[in-house]
Computed example of a mutant assay.
Amino acid sequence: MWISRIRTSRAAWPSVLIHDPTLRDGHHAVGHQLDVDQLRAYATATNAARVPVVEVGHGNGLGASSLQIGRALLDDATMLTTVREALTSSKMGVFMAPGWGTSQDLTAAVHLGADVVRIAAHCTEADVTERHLGTARSLSAEAQGVLLMSHMASPERLAEQCALMVKYGAQAVGIMDSAGRYLPGDVIERVHAITEAVDVPVIFHGHNNLGLAVANSLAAVEAGASVIDATARGFGTGAGNTQLEALVAVLDRRGFDTGIGLREVLSAADVAADHLMKAPPSIDSIAVAGGLAGVFSGFKRPVLEAARAEGVNAIDLFLALGQRQIVAGQEDLIGDVARQLKAGSR
């Protein structure tokens, strides 16, 4: 079996640091409309559970609230201030993609108490992170670099891109399975390549389109990743993310120390279910199609809207977007592709 094969190849295992983006990535699932009471309730619960890092913000990160991808109910400063007050022991994290956020947004976030700063780039464009990773380091925040839509690049290319981010000052680097496309073997191959190329902690962020987010996260740990992302009840768009409370339980069974209280994190998950979401994410046909097509999970809502507007099949639209390798930030192309499908069916 792949787990036992890899596990016996290493003599010592590091602790696993859980990074919880429930209040950021989960925001996609509710149109970025979480309010102050919701943010405070969940942040308080995760702090009690000793979750190491709690990430907060608009689903697309600092500075991203806009008509194009959705206006948040609260501005960045209000979100960060609310969560910072609730976190007496956990660190607060923020996420920023150059092009949506700016150095001014980043500086403001650190001044409001952000401890961990993640700078994200498309999987072949690590060079855009250089300035902002440098800014984060100059502000004495922990600087991390992550590659989006990582299934679109080879393990060797991902390793090269991660090494670049380390050169730019990243203190941890890794990959996001933005489309929920990976199988465990894919994760192992990529994480192994990255760990061979860098000497900083490696990050893995999974999505659950094919029902493998927890398995893929465990595979990442077995292959050498030591920072794993997970959200309460898998809160996130489409089929959601790696489920936090399930992952903590699985890692505990495998003998990995997360430092998180299991009872407390189960309670935090209940808080999330009761206060943040109408229903937990599920793996529906659209989610599976998105995973197979390799399309960003955050496109589910605009794809459904465009498919209804043009009278085309949403699964066909997802597959067409995958063929065109559409990525986050190209939401305006969804309608164009839907119209092309409609015209081609006449």
Rank of each mutant, 00 (worst) to 15 (best):
W2D: 13
R10S: 09
H19W: 13
P21Y: 04
T22Y: 00
L23P: 00
V30F: 00
Q33C: 04
D35V: 10
Q38C: 06
R40H: 03
N47Q: 04
R50G: 03
P52V: 07
V53L: 14
V56P: 06
H58R: 08
G59Q: 11
L62C: 08
L67P: 04
L73G: 00
L73W: 00
T81K: 10
T88M: 11
S89D: 15
F95E: 10
G101W: 03
S103Y: 05
D115W: 05
V117P: 09
A120L: 11
A121C: 15
A121D: 04
H122W: 02
C123S: 15
E130H: 14
T135G: 05
T135N: 08
A141K: 12
S150D: 11
G169C: 13
V173K: 03
G174N: 12
S178C: 07
G180P: 06
Y182K: 11
L183A: 14
D186E: 13
V191D: 12
H192W: 05
A193W: 03
A193L: 09
D199R: 11
P201S: 12
N208F: 04
N209S: 15
A215I: 07
N216Q: 05
S217V: 06
A219D: 11
R233W: 07
R233E: 12
G240Y: 01
N241M: 06
L247W: 02
L251E: 02
R253L: 13
G255R: 04
G255H: 03
T258P: 08
I260E: 06
G261F: 03
R263V: 12
L266F: 08
L276C: 02
M277G: 04
K278T: 14
K278W: 05
S282L: 13
D284P: 03
G290Q: 15
G290P: 02
G291C: 09
G298M: 04
R301Y: 10
P302V: 10
E305F: 03
A306H: 01
V312E: 01
I315C: 09
L319V: 15
A320M: 10
A328I: 05
L333E: 13
G335H: 01
D336F: 01
V337F: 00
A338D: 01
K342L: 07
